[in-house]
């Protein structure tokens, strides 16, 4: 399949922001699998500011194609400094918008980025033994299910 990356995608791929690992992260989202070739980890550090939980720091590590690396970088930038509630509302569409454009066959990478962030927040709330919002719980289960289905289909 032939496609070309936009200048913005290339910029993020070649010079991604927020790369790395956070030691003692408050939440870690791990998504993707080796079968499709993309694995994405997002680490978050949460601080309470004026009674609100804010993503103080966020970093990512990704094994994957240029689109996977670019979308990882973009989602960390979008989420940094946001409250958990606002971070949960970030969608893959916003990621694509920030990239200007993404080849349609690479949309799944932006979805993976959204899921990685959601999973990191899920992990944080779970570790804090907090009530998980219904929507997030549903998303978490959907991620688990699709992972299972994927493995069944291709594994």
């Amino acid at each position: 399949m032939v496609f070309q990356y936009s200048k913005k995608v290339m910029k993020y791929f070649l010079r991604p922001k927020n790369v790395g690992k956070i030691k003692n992260a408050d939440g870690i989202g791990r998504v993707g699998n080796m079968l499709c070739g993309d694995i994405m980890y997002i680490f978050i550090k949460v601080r309470i500011k004026r009674k609100k939980e804010i993503i103080k720091d966020i970093k990512f590590q990704t094994l994957g194609c240029p689109a996977a690396i670019a979308t990882s970088s973009v989602i960390t930038e979008l989420a940094k400094g946001k409250t958990l509630g606002k971070a949960l509302k970030i969608t893959n569409k916003e990621v694509i918008k920030k990239l200007g454009e993404l080849p349609p066959i690479k949309y799944h990478c932006s979805l993976l980025a959204e899921e990685a962030l959601d999973e990191a927040i899920y992990d944080y709330l779970k570790k804090q033994k907090r009530k998980i919002p219904v929507l997030l719980k549903k998303k978490h289960q959907k991620i688990l299910m699709s992972e299972k289905k994927f493995k069944k289909k291709f594994g």
Partner: peptide
Amino acid sequence: SACSTKSLKP
């Protein structure tokens, strides 16, 4: 590698 093909299969 074929992260771009529909099946994602290499």
